[in-house]
Design a protein around this nucleic acid. Structure first.
Lengths: 107, 107
DNA sequence: TATATACGCAACTGATTGGTTTCTCAAAAT
DNA sequence: ATTTTGAGAAACCAATCAGTTGCGTATATA
């Protein structure tokens, strides 16, 4: 069970679940209504997301509300950051080139 | 073959490949040296990454250099952004609370 | 020209995945 | 007290996946 956060967000249903509960905590049943699948399938996804600590449960009677654990999401952000730096650098370089051209036009 | 970029970066080897070629374009053989696996396995990963347009090939004689296509990576960044907004908002709210406490202390 | 190298492709294998069905348990409603 | 409802757990299945092995092809070198 070498489950990491990148594997967790690889599935489109799980990504949709995360977006949904980002707005408000939801139960498996109410989540399942948003998808063309059974509650059990959603439950399985929620288990995976819980294992990755991307969501946490809040018991309320016999209902379980799942809510987002936003902090874990920062790990993905952190990984993407190294690439963000690359395209920002390239943009800055392009910017330099453009301003050089501008200067040359002025002269 | 419903391969999307999130599935592509779900595999740790593929993530490592992306980081490696971010620094400089590399051939399948030189990439394989960095992992405990065969060239063919790396080649398969590269094929998936190519299909997702995360890398592109540059033929040079009988060698094929794979280089990063940074633009595709922005799709992941875009998806994470909606969550980034959430934790930034929460941080700002915390900031407000802290400054309110500060003010109360002053009075 | 013969040989070695770099590579992709196809077939195969064992492991994993997403999904369904069935079961059980606990809380709520009748 | 009985029934309904919300939910997790286990067993099962088809599809997919990561990796290996073997093969064919094109480029480089002897």
């Amino acid at each position: 069970m070498r489950r990491d956060i990148f594997q967790a967000i690889a599935d489109p249903t799980r990504r949709a679940i995360l977006v949904l509960i980002a707005a408000q905590a939801m139960t498996p049943n109410s989540l399942a209504e948003h998808f063309d699948t059974t509650r059990q399938a959603v439950s399985k996804h929620l288990r995976i997301l819980t294992e990755c600590e991307l969501v946490k449960q809040e018991y309320q009677g016999r209902e379980i509300y799942y809510q987002l654990e936003i902090n874990k999401m920062k790990e993905v952000d952190k990984w993407v950051e190294q690439f963000r730096k690359i395209w920002e650098d390239r943009f800055n370089q392009l910017d330099k080139v453009l301003s050089t051209i501008k200067k040359q036009k002025k002269c």
